[in-house]
């Protein structure tokens, strides 16, 4: 198993922390992992992206130009990374703020209205977990058990009371995913 994922959006959407939780879940599952962020003046408002690789074997390059999965949370990232998805791969996007829909016919395309869903369940900060849920529904590369373990490792102990809320957000994401173009 080797899964090469790019997660891209605005700074502040939880792109990097979603990647970190996914990577930690991979460790809990006994996988090799790398997490490589774009870094720089991108704290809020700018674009942020992270490449996460999960693999059964030692990982060589942490930097990629082609991805199995692209998780896209704004228009700029869609423009930038749509063509980088490998044929047969998967693109998940949040339609919020998207003005040009993805056009590829040789990949699976799904959407998750994570902004709306997170607001509905009263956990707008759980936005990135809704997206993670949608991804895991299609690609169960790590078990939900290991995701919870990964969450516990990624967030400080004083916030562990929030884990059930995050679990709910993940479950909502799994339920509400919309598949547009299945191969």
């Amino acid at each position: 198993m080797k899964e090469e994922i790019i997660i891209a959006g605005f700074g502040g959407q939880g792109v990097l922390s979603m990647g970190k939780i996914l990577a930690y879940s991979g460790i809990m599952q006994g996988q090799e992992v790398t997490w490589m962020p774009s870094y720089g003046p991108e704290m809020r408002g700018g674009t942020a992206n992270v490449t996460v690789i999960l693999s059964d074997k030692k990982i060589s390059s942490p930097i990629l130009s082609k991805f199995d999965v692209a998780i896209i949370l704004n228009q700029q990232s869609l423009d930038k990374f749509e063509e980088g998805v490998k044929p047969g791969g998967l693109l998940i996007y949040d339609p919020n703020g998207i003005t040009r829909l993805p056009e590829r016919k040789d990949i699976t395309i799904c959407s998750i209205s994570a902004v709306d869903i997170a607001a509905e369940i009263g956990n707008s900060k759980g936005y990135n977990m809704v997206v993670l849920g949608a991804y895991l529904k299609l690609r169960p590369v790590v078990t939900l058990d290991n995701v919870i373990k990964g969450l516990k490792k990624s967030i400080p102990e004083r916030h562990h009371s929030l884990i059930p809320m995050n679990e709910k957000a993940i479950a909502a994401g799994m339920e509400r995913l919309v598949i547009h173009n299945s191969l």
């Binding site: 970190k20 992992v33 790398t34 490589m36 930097i63």
Partner: peptide, 10 residues
């Protein structure tokens, strides 16, 4: 280098 410094691994 910036990659090795910023990249997370186990």
């Amino acid at each position: 280098d910036g990659v090795v410094g910023q990249m997370m691994e186990k």
